[in-house]
Each structure stands twice: as C-alpha cells, then as structure tokens.
Design a protein around this nucleic acid. Structure first.
Lengths: 223, 223
DNA sequence: GAGTCAGGTGTACGGCGTACACCTGAGCTA
DNA sequence: TAGCTCAGGTGTACGCCGTACACCTGACTC
C-alpha cells in the first residue's frame, strides 16, 4: 500500500512544504490538514515534527528569515541597515503571506532574533549607544521586516476597490474632504492611481534613519 | 416561554454586547456563538443585524473609534495630532483587543476614515501640502491608532517571559550580543526591567512629527 | 381577513486544531 | 534468535468555528 521506503518526514521537509503551500495558496490555506494532505500523510503525523500550529508558522518564518542575505562587511551603517531592511522587503515580495505570519507567530525564533541582532550590530559598530539603538529600533518597528505599519488598508490582499459609484464617491469626498484631497493629489501626481508603496516605504525609512543619525551626533540619551 | 416583550435586538445592541464580551474575555472569545449566547439568542439571529463576522468586528471598531474625543479647536497642528493619537492610545488601553481588531477588520468604516481625515485635516490647516500629508501619514502608520508597529514581541498578550534558565540565557547573549546589550542597557536604566512602552511610543511619534515639520518648512515634494 | 415581512429558530455542513490510543517496523540488546 | 524499545505514521473522536437554508411567528398593513 505505502510507497516502498518513502523517506520519513522531518521538520525541515514539513516546513519546506508549508512554505510551498503558502506560496501557492496563501496563508489561509496553510492548515494542518491541507499540509498533511500535500505530504501524503495523516494530519496527526505532523505533530511528530511540530509542536502545534503556532510552532509550524514560527518555524516557517524562521526558515525564511534565516535565508536573508547579509550585506558586504565594508558598508557603512546606513547602507548596511538599508540593505537588510530591503532584503526583508524583497523576501516579503516573494512570500506575501510572510507578513501575516510575522504578525501571527508568537514563538521567538533564532533567525528572527539574528536579524534584529544584525541590525542592532550595524548601529553598534557605528558607535550608536544601545540606548539609542533600542529606541530607534522600536521606532523602526515593522519596517525592519520590510513592511510598513499600514494605517489605511489593513489587509493588503483584500478586495481591490469595489468600483464605487460616483454619487457615493462624491458623498465620501464631502464627508472626508482631506482624505479625498490626498487621493486627488496622489492621482494627479501618479495617474496610475495607486500609492507608490516603495516610495512611501523608503520615505518613512529614510526619515527614521535621518533622525537616528542626528540624535546620535547630538549624543541623545533617553529621558 | 420567551420573556414577554423582550425588546428586539438591533445592530447597536449587538455591537455593544460584542464590545463588552471582548472586554471581559478577549478577542478570541468573541465568536458568533458566544456572543449570541450572551444575548440569549440563537447564533443565526445575529445575522439579521450583521452581515458576517468581519462586519461584526468592523462594526465594533467603528463604534469604538467613533467615540474618540476631539481636541480643542484652538490647538496647534502638532498638539492636535498628538491629542488624537494619544486618544487612540488611551482607547487601546481600555480595550486591548482593539489592536487585533484593527489588524483584522477589512471593511472600511466611517469612523476610521473620519479619524484619519481629522489627522489629515490638522496638518492641512497648518498649511502642509497633501503630498506631504500623504507620505507623512504613511510614515506614521499604525502609530495613528495608538500602537507602535512592534518588531519584537508580536503578540502583546502572550506568555510573559518564561523564566529562562541562566545557562540558556548566557548562550542567547553569546549568540545575539547586540540584543543582549540592548537588554542590559535597558535594565540598567530601568531596574523594573520592562521596556518603557510609553516613552518608546512617544519617541517614535515625536521623531516623525519633527521630521514632518522640517520637511514642511523646507517645501518638500515627493520624488 | 389575507398578505407582508422583520426578526428569531433549528438543523446541518464543512472546516479547523488537536487529544489519545493504537499500530508498525527498524535497530538494538541478551 | 527472541524480545524490547521507540520513532514515526494511523484512526477516531471531540469541541470549536462561521454560516447556508428552510422555517416559524407575531405584529402591522390594505
């Protein structure tokens, strides 16, 4: 019945399959049941390799983050941090579900810690105080993972603008004039209509790096 | 059998009960079934007042956000924005589940739009260009909702440090020296040990407001 | 007095994570 | 060689979830 000598599962193969499944079908499709089906195995078999669902997604995050490339050693702190953040952003583009995974996983993972440690190390080597590094990284927030903390569209995979009829749209513009003006200004500048995600992301990133540079030079101390 | 003339449900009462339930038992306990039980009604009855679960949580968010107080009209743009952001933060403290709700809800809500519009309005009245307002609010990100985009502990309600044994801790410190140094520096400054969330939040907020002020004065334009 | 209809009911389906008992076969030891 | 251990896969079951669909009921209208 069983394939002769089907090599036994292990954690790495489970995680790899989970990544592939999420890539193909999105984060919601990553269930213990569908994953086990993909591996030709019964759902409970996964629990021999993974403590629970949370451990699974933490492991997936860990696997992906552990593959972030490292910047050249010779780079300045700013280029180095930027490189790491953009590397995270690039991974996010290849695995859009990563965002929800990072938001969902609760177990701390070595690779995740290593990424944070590396960013902190870039700053420490440049002479930043750990006090400033600490506060600065909190200010950076999710940006160190390559995505901005969006206040607008919480779910980036949701319905893409349900074609609002003009009357409704006019009412909206009247009720929320400033939001409407932002939209108008934005489409005037970029007729394609959508936000320029990359530009906005880099705007925020450089803003914060600038600020940290200035505070470092000024000998900032907390409180 | 039924209570005589039990007043019929309506959307507002459903949302109010949902808020109370979330306050008492957390966001995970807010299910259609438990909510209906609380209202003495069968689960499907809720669907007469709410389109689906997502509509429920969107409605809850809308209700809470619509109660954010408004700053005095005479305030400067900076005080006004700060007031709104801190008002959101205060609401978050009263309803910790709000964070997960905001992250989870996908339907756009009038109150949410109004909050964003109000912040944008504060800036617009001070003469900021909509271009800068747009980019600036993206940089602010979730901070306009009163919570920082945490890169460290994704789930603020999770296990509170599982008392790691010293050997393990030393190994961690060796593997992640910069993270360890940050922790050491932080506990040296604040023997209580924990991060000073408020100080970190305000640090990031003021950083961004400073930057926006400077860019505005310099006549910044995107691209 | 018949019709409409808002609002509450009951049943059911298909999904989820996972506890628990069990089986199986390879590898070791006596 | 007989028996043991034990890692790894199985099968069944439970309790939860959101919600589709058909139904009932009682108030209000023409």
């Amino acid at each position: 019945m069983v394939e002769p000598h089907r090599s036994p599962l292990n954690r790495a193969r489970v995680l790899e399959a989970a990544i592939a499944l999420a890539d193909e079908a999105g984060p919601d499709a990553l269930s213990m049941r569908s994953l086990s089906a993909r591996l030709g195995v019964v759902p409970m078999a996964l629990y021999k390799h993974v403590a629970d669902k949370d451990d699974l997604v933490s492991g997936v995050i860990d696997t992906v983050v552990s593959r972030y490339p490292a910047p050249d050693a010779g780079l300045g702190w700013r280029e180095s941090v930027r490189y790491r953040v953009h590397a995270a952003r690039a991974a996010l583009e290849r695995h859009p579900w990563l965002r929800s995974g990072i938001l969902q996983a609760t177990r701390q993972s070595p690779a995740v810690l290593a990424h944070l440690d590396a960013v902190a190390g870039d700053l420490a080597r440049a002479g930043f105080s750990y006090d400033l590094i600490h506060y600065g990284m909190h200010a950076l927030g999710h940006r160190v993972w390559g995505f901005a903390p969006e206040a607008f569209s919480p779910a980036p995979g949701a319905a893409p603008a349900p074609a609002p009829d003009p009357a409704q749209l006019a009412a909206l513009a009247a009720a929320f004039p400033h939001v409407a003006s932002i939209a108008a200004d934005s489409t005037a500048r970029n007729p394609a209509g959508a936000c320029d995600d990359d530009a906005e992301f880099d705007f925020g990133l450089e803003l914060l790096l600038d600020a940290m540079e200035r505070l470092h030079a000024a000998g900032w101390v907390s409180r």
